[in-house]
Design a protein around this nucleic acid. Structure first.
Lengths: 209, 209
DNA sequence: TAGATTGTTAATCGATTAACAATC
DNA sequence: TAGATTGTTAATCGATTAACAATC
C-alpha cells in the first residue's frame, strides 16, 4: 500500500536500486525476484519489497519484477523524466570536472548555464554549457526556470549566495562547499556532498580496524 | 561507558561534530553544553551525550564540554593525528580538482603521489604532488606505506584496479567512480562518493515536494 | 550551597526482518 | 495444477529520546 511519509533511509536506497536495475537491464536480464536482487545488492528481500511497496505494486506473484518496467518506475519516482533545469555557480576545478564528466542528462537534468566571476572563463563554453558573468545571474534566473543550483563556490560566500538565490525563488541546491547551509523555508532542499566528512569517516574506519 | 560496536549512524555524525567544534573553536568559544551544541546542529542533547559516551567521558557535570578539548578528542577518534598516507589514481579533471582544492592535510592525510596513464600529466607536479606513470604504481606501493587510495578513474577499469590494489595490500579506498566496488576481505574499507545518487536524491525531493 | 549539566538507564519510536495468505 | 514470489501484517531489533541520579 502506498505510503505518504517516505523515510530518508528509503529515499537514499532508491538511486541504488535504479543503478542496479540499469545494470541488469544493460546485461539483458528480463526479470528478477526480490530475493536475487537482494543478493546482488546485499539487502534483504523483505526490505526490497517493503521499499517498493511504499510507491505502488510493481511486481507479480510467482514471477518477480520485470527489470525494464521496474527500472522505469523507479526512474519515474526519482524524477529522471521531469526534465529538471540546473545551473552551476562557480566554475573552478571542481565545477569544470562536473561539467565535463558528470552525466547530468542521464540523471534527468538539463544544464542551462554556469556562472563565475573570473574573466578567464566568462564567455567560454564548457562541454556545451555557456559560462556567464555573475552579474547576469539574477537576470537569468528571472527569465528561465531553474530547479537546482550547483554550488561549487568558496565557503566564504556560500551562505550569502544561497540566501540570495533563495530570495530569487531557488528551492534546490546541490552543495559542494563542505559547509552546512540553511534556510528558514522548509520547501528549500539542500543536498550536500561533504568530501571532508566522507574522508574522515574512512579515516575513522581504517584507524579503528 | 565506552562501547565496542559503534553504529554507522554514530560514525557519520562524528565528522559533523568535528566540523562544528572547529567552527566554535575558531569563533573563540571556550565551553559548550550538549544542549547548545544540539541547538546549533539540530540534534537532541540526549543524542549528543549518547554519541560521545560511546568513546569516553569528555564533559563535566554542571559545566558542559571544553570546546578545544572535545574537538581534539573527536579529531583523535577520527584519526586526524594518525598521519595517514594517501595516493591518487587517475588525474583527470576531478583528480586535479581534489589535489588543488581539497585540504587533505587538515583531514590528517599526506598525499604522497598520483598516478595516471596520460603522458601529458606524467612527470608534472600538481599542488606539490608528483604525478607518476601507472607503470610505477606497483613499485611505489611496495616501497611506501599507503593507507588510502583515491580512485578517480573511469568505471570501466575501477573494479579490476581495486582488486589489483587489494592484492598489493591496500585496505582503504576513497571511491569516486559512482560504482559499487567489492572485496571479499572484510578489512578492506570502501568509502564512496556517489555523485549520481546524491543528485537523484535531490531530484526526488524536488519532484515530490 | 544551589544551579547546571553530565553520563547512563529506561522508555519510546521507527526501521528492518520474518512470516504468510493471496495469487500469478 | 504445483511452485514461486509477491504485498502486507506482525515480530524483532536497533536507534533516538526522555528521565534522573550523580556531581561539578
Amino acid at each position: 500500500m502506498k505510503k505518504d511519509n517516505i523515510s530518508d533511509a528509503v529515499i537514499r536506497r532508491l538511486p541504488r536500486y535504479y543503478r542496479q536495475l540499469n545494470e541488469l537491464f544493460n546485461r539483458g536480464i528480463i526479470r528478477i525476484s526480490s530475493h536475487s536482487l537482494g543478493e546482488e545488492m546485499n539487502i534483504t528481500a523483505s526490505q526490497i519489497r517493503q521499499d517498493f511497496s511504499c510507491f505502488g505494486e510493481f511486481g507479480q506473484q510467482g514471477y518477480g519484477y520485470n527489470v525494464e518496467e521496474l527500472r522505469s518506475e523507479i526512474g519515474h519516482i526519482l524524477g529522471v523524466d521531469n526534465n529538471h533545469h540546473l545551473i552551476m555557480i562557480g566554475v573552478g576545478n571542481l565545477g569544470h570536472a562536473l561539467l565535463q564528466n558528470f552525466p547530468f542528462s542521464q540523471t534527468g537534468f538539463a544544464v542551462d548555464a554556469a556562472f563565475d566571476v573570473s574573466p578567464i572563463v566568462i564567455g567560454t563554453t564548457i562541454h556545451g554549457v555557456p559560462v556567464y558573468s555573475m552579474n547576469d545571474l539574477d537576470g537569468f534566473i528571472r527569465e528561465h526556470p531553474v530547479d537546482v543550483v550547483v554550488l561549487t563556490i568558496p565557503q566564504s560566500i556560500a551562505q550569502e549566495t544561497a540566501s540570495h538565490l533563495i530570495s530569487l525563488g531557488i528551492q534546490g541546491f546541490w552543495n559542494f562547499t563542505n559547509m552546512e547551509l540553511n534556510s528558514s523555508k522548509p520547501e528549500v532542499k539542500f543536498e550536500n556532498i561533504h568530501f571532508a566528512d566522507s574522508l574522515l569517516t574512512l579515516s575513522y574506519r581504517i584507524a579503528n580496524r
